[in-house]
Amino acid sequence: MDFLQTLILTTDSAVRLSVPLLFACLAGLYSERSGVVDIGLEGKMLGGAFAAGCVAAITGSAWLGLLAAILVSIGLALVHGYASITQRGNQIVSGVAINFVASGLTALLGQAWFGRGGKTPQLPNTARFTEITLPFAEPMRNVPVIGRIYSDIISGHSLLVYAAFIAIPLTWWILYRTRFGLRLRAVGENPGAVDTAGISVAWMRYRAVIIAGILCGFAGAYLSIAQSAGFSKDMTAGKGFIALAALVFAKWKPLNALGACFLFGFLDAVAIRMQGTALPVVGEVPVQAMQALPYILTVILLAGFIGKSIPPKADGVPYTKER
């Protein structure tokens, strides 16, 4: 296989693999920009994936599956919001709890309802988000380089993939060009300023947390009814945490998030593709090393060896009025 072919295939697969990261990373971005730390991305995705798998299997509708994913994920987000915002509890602990509850309940209910070892029934293509071929993809294929990129990398994905890539500029626009974005950024930096400006800190944060829920719903639905044809137990497999790493890596900025998620998706794609192939100079790279790379890179970034990643100032701090 020629190098270009390998590169195109790897990139194409990187696009697919980075989609759940993108959704989850943006979810974390909204939440943390408002001052609520979210390590429950994993759990919300998992809950969403399960709901999508169930509802799509029962109704045969991918759209209803997506809706269910969003609702369940919002539900979990609201639990996190209640603990973090209203109860002013420890946000990390709450996130851990969400992950446990989601992991346990999806497997338990999956087994109780479908009896397939935690899997939901195999979905027909009509109940999934299937690949879409963009206009002119076929004729373009023969144009050198650009044509290949268009037809092989840009075209041929499910609707949710495009949604993820649209969500990035949209988030940027919301954050920096709208009233909501201004207030969101403010509430994560200095909630006191927002409160004294007559804006409810709690309601701002709840809205951010709900948006995080919606986005994690998308991420979950993508996993179970777009990328796969059904839910399987613990199918998020740590993607929520990679998304969290990507968020840190992206320094809590939307455009950087695209780069970070794509990088981590690409590393994943390379790891899958390269399994067992020897590289020049370094020889065969163990697949585990490739898997660990996103985390190692994030640690190095956090340590300030390559730039500095500083979280929103009020991130993780419950808001109480000062006396």
Binding site: Y176, R177, T178, R179, F180, G181, L182, R183, R185, A186, E189, N190, A193, V194, A197, G198, I199, K313
Partner: peptide, 20 residues
């Protein structure tokens, strides 16, 4: 909000519409 501009701080809460 320390990392905001003067203008952003002044309009916070009275942005005058959904778009900035």
């Amino acid at each position: 909000v320390e990392n905001f501009s003067v203008l952003e701080n002044v309009v916070l809460g009275v942005e005058g519409g959904a778009l900035l």
